[in-house]
């Protein structure tokens, strides 16, 4: 037999044998996978942001199929995704309130005093270790963008030393909330018009010494709110969004303009 023919036959035989073995093995070792898993995973945003608390979109899809996670677990996907997943699972869609992240600090460069010039790693946790960051306020945004780096949707940018969330890009997944070492990012309802742009827990007189945009807990907003949605607790005003009807009295009355509005933006986008 010619060497070429031998080579051809041996290689063909090896290929054929391995092919048959693999085909047989795929039959013998077939594992039934739930097809809903793949369907749900295709519906999820695929950013693997981790906002749901699972290791990624694939892990969440499995958890939903197992019934461990609710069909509305993906905050980033929004109500549409939630409805579609509910349809795949054959369940009723759950009520879904779209949330967005808001950095509760207005202490930009010109407004908050600086203690020193920070020239280290561009990371909030690193800056926090260097004497709590360069800003004099112990509660405010450090402004080195750890939240921006954590955001899977590119919704956060640094504006004048304070992180700013672009509400149109924000999907409300909450990854930045846990990324912020100071815990000053909160999830608020997407259509919230007013929020308190300060997290200072110090007394008014003290807050006044280091920040022009700090809440001094004067309680004017609390006294004037017609629905009782604002309360001053722990040195700062807080809005209860289940009661707030967006009348805007607090915004107008606040003597230091700590209560911030998105009204201009909302009117523009409508």
């Amino acid at each position: 037999m010619s060497p070429v023919l031998t080579a051809f036959l041996v290689l063909a035989a090896v290929g054929a044998i391995l092919g048959v073995m693999l085909a047989a093995a795929s039959r013998i070792f077939a594992v039934k996978t739930d097809e809903r898993c793949e369907k749900i995973q295709a519906l999820l945003p695929g950013a693997n942001c981790g906002g749901c608390g699972y290791a990624g979109c694939g892990a969440l899809a499995e958890a939903i199929v197992r019934g461990e996670a609710p069909t509305s677990a993906c905050k980033a996907g929004g109500p549409e995704t939630s409805e579609k997943i509910a349809a795949v699972m054959g369940k009723k869609p759950e009520a879904f309130v779209r949330m967005r992240a808001q950095v509760m600090c207005s202490g930009s460069r010109g407004k908050t005093k600086r203690l020193y010039e920070y020239q280290g790693l561009e990371d909030c946790s690193a800056a926090l270790r260097a004497g709590g960051g360069d800003k004099a306020c112990p509660y405010g945004c450090i402004g080195h963008g750890s939240c921006a780096a954590a955001c899977a949707f590119g919704a956060i940018s640094l504006v004048d030393g304070v992180a700013a969330v672009d509400p149109d890009k924000c999907r409300g997944c909450g990854t930045c909330v846990s990324a912020c070492p100071k815990g000053i990012i909160k999830l608020i309802p997407f259509d919230a018009v007013y929020w308190v742009g300060c997290m200072s827990e110090d007394k008014g007189a003290q807050t006044r010494t280091y920040c022009e945009a700090g809440c001094i807990a004067c309680r004017i907003c609390e006294k004037n709110c017609p629905t009782g949605a604002i309360s001053v607790v722990g040195g700062r005003a807080q809005i209860d969004y289940s009661k707030c009807d967006a009348c805007g009295v607090c915004y107008e009355k606040c003597p230091r303009k700590i209560i911030v509005t998105s009204r201009e933006r909302v009117i523009l986008s409508v």
Partner: peptide
């Protein structure tokens, strides 16, 4: 490929 199927099952 074979190992992958074997382990999965």
């Amino acid at each position: 490929q074979f190992i992958e199927m074997f382990l999965k099952k």
